[in-house]
Every structure is written in structure tokens, then in C-alpha cells.
């Protein structure tokens, strides 16, 4: 039994079959990578799990509950957090506030309407946010406005926003895109490390094979909306269909 079980998911955009009969089985506590050429449907698949899209048919069961047909905030409250392909952060707010918000959402639930509480007196939330930012190496930028950060820093901020919630399932859409090599390695270490201390299951979409092979315990290969292979890393490397999909892309 996986913590996330996806069966026969289909999604059509007009004439484009973006996903066809996608199956996915993510083991609890594992790192599951999804790779595939551009436009394969990787992000579309994640969109189906967080309530951004509803698949035409199929099912996605997380921890015994269906993720389809419920609202994004309800999915998050079940313990699913996502890092987006283009950073989704609160650009006008400070870095610290960016991380405190998800921490509030994690502690207080979907809403808590108390106009007379104090942000300044929430030491516990603040500490939590500061620690998470330290883990991401952003401790010197906490008072900065998020919009003024570099692309790599924004991505790490978004990761901090997800990690502060201690999700059960973390979905990462190209978490190292736009990062320098050193930062990429740091992120790899971090993702490994949090996997050990807390029981966070991770689904990672990546183009960077260095990242994929450093982290993944299992890899699904998506091409033109279809899973063409799902296996352990060693077997994926030499898989004929995978080579074909990537070489095919290279020729275009």
C-alpha cells in the first residue's frame, strides 16, 4: 500500500491528451522522482493532486482519502504541500512573514478569525519559521521583501514555506531549477536530511539527472502523458524506452 495511489488518470486539454491512463504508486517515506521531456505532463499530474485541476477520469488516493473534488486548502490540511515550478510566494511580504503564514495555517487550521491576536507575540511560530529558514540558509534574509530575492532564493523560500508545515507528502516541481551547483547540492543534502529525521514522503519532478539519481528511490518516466517506465534508478538508466523518449526529444 502506497501513501499516494494514482490510478488511470486522464486529462484532456481541447485536442491534447495531456495525461492518459497514468498510474503512480508512491511508497510512504520514499523519494519518488518523475522525469520526462518538456511538455510530458509532469506538472499537469501534480496539478491534479493539489486541486488546481480535476482529471477527467481516474482516482488519486492519499492516505486513504481521495484528493479529487476537494479544495486546495483542504488538500493541504490533509498534509500535502507543494513547491511550484514557478515560485509561488507572497512577494510583497517579508521572508519571515512568508514562512509564518504556512506555520499559522498548520497550527490553526484553515482559518482562525481573531483580529486582536498579535503576530509579534507568536514566539513559537516565529521560532519555527526562523529555524526552517536557517535550514534553508536564508537566515540573513529574513527581513527582506520576498520579491527582491534571487530566483534560487525564492525557490528555497518556497521550500521553507512547505517544510514548516511538516507535510506528510511534499510535492516538488523542479526544486533546483535556477540554482547554482553549490545550492543544488545543498538542496539535495537538505532533502535527504529531512527525509531521515521526519517521515516526509517526497515526489520530485526534475530535469537535473544528478539530483534525480542522488535522491530517488523510485523513478517514473512520463512521455506524452503516458508513464512509459516505473522502476528503481539503476534499471531506469538503461531502459530502452526511456533512452528513446529522451533521444527523440534531443533530435527535435
Amino acid at each position: 500500500m502506497g501513501i499516494l495511489e494514482v490510478q488511470n488518470v486522464n486529462k484532456r486539454f481541447g485536442g491534447l491528451q495531456a495525461l492518459s491512463n497514468v498510474n503512480l504508486n508512491v511508497e510512504e517515506g520514499s523519494v519518488h522522482a518523475i522525469i520526462g521531456p518538456n511538455g510530458a505532463g509532469k506538472s499537469t499530474l501534480l496539478n491534479c493532486f493539489v486541486g488546481r485541476l480535476t482529471p477527467d477520469t481516474g482516482s488519486a488516493i492519499f492516505d486513504g482519502q481521495s484528493l479529487l473534488g476537494i479544495k486546495p486548502h483542504e488538500i493541504n490540511q490533509l498534509g500535502v504541500s507543494r513547491v511550484f515550478q514557478t515560485p509561488e510566494i507572497f512577494t510583497d511580504l517579508t521572508v519571515l512573514e512568508n514562512v509564518m503564514i504556512p506555520a499559522f495555517a498548520h497550527r490553526d487550521g484553515a482559518y482562525k478569525l481573531n483580529p486582536f491576536a498579535h503576530v509579534a507575540r507568536e514566539a513559537e511560530i516565529r521560532d519555527l519559521a526562523e529555524h526552517t529558514l536557517e535550514d534553508m540558509g536564508l537566515q540573513d534574509k529574513m527581513e527582506m521583501t520576498a520579491s527582491s530575492m534571487s530566483r534560487g532564493d525564492k525557490r528555497r523560500l518556497e521550500m521553507a514555506m512547505c517544510l514548516v508545515q511538516e507535510p506528510k507528502l511534499l510535492l516538488l516541481d523542479e526544486p533546483t531549477a535556477g540554482m547554482a551547483r553549490a545550492d543544488t547540492n545543498r538542496t539535495i543534502d537538505l532533502l535527504k536530511h529531512i527525509g531521515e529525521t521526519r517521515n516526509i514522503t517526497k515526489v520530485v519532478i526534475e530535469h537535473d539527472m544528478h539530483v534525480v539519481f542522488s535522491l530517488a528511490e523510485k523513478i517514473s518516466v512520463l512521455a506524452q502523458g503516458t508513464v512509459i517506465a516505473e522502476d528503481v534508478p539503476e534499471k531506469i538508466k538503461g531502459h530502452p524506452k526511456v533512452r528513446e523518449a529522451y533521444l527523440g526529444e534531443a533530435q527535435v
Binding site: 479544495k71 490540511q77 511550484f84 487550521g109
Partner: peptide, 14 residues
């Protein structure tokens, strides 16, 4: 005001 979508994906019912 800054990013209502993000807030939804963060678990907040706006």
C-alpha cells in the same frame, strides 16, 4: 492581496 492562490495551497480558506 499578494497571492491568494498561494494562500489556498498553503491550507488557508480565504
Amino acid at each position: 492581496k499578494t497571492n491568494q492562490n498561494r494562500l489556498n495551497y498553503t491550507g488557508v480558506s480565504t
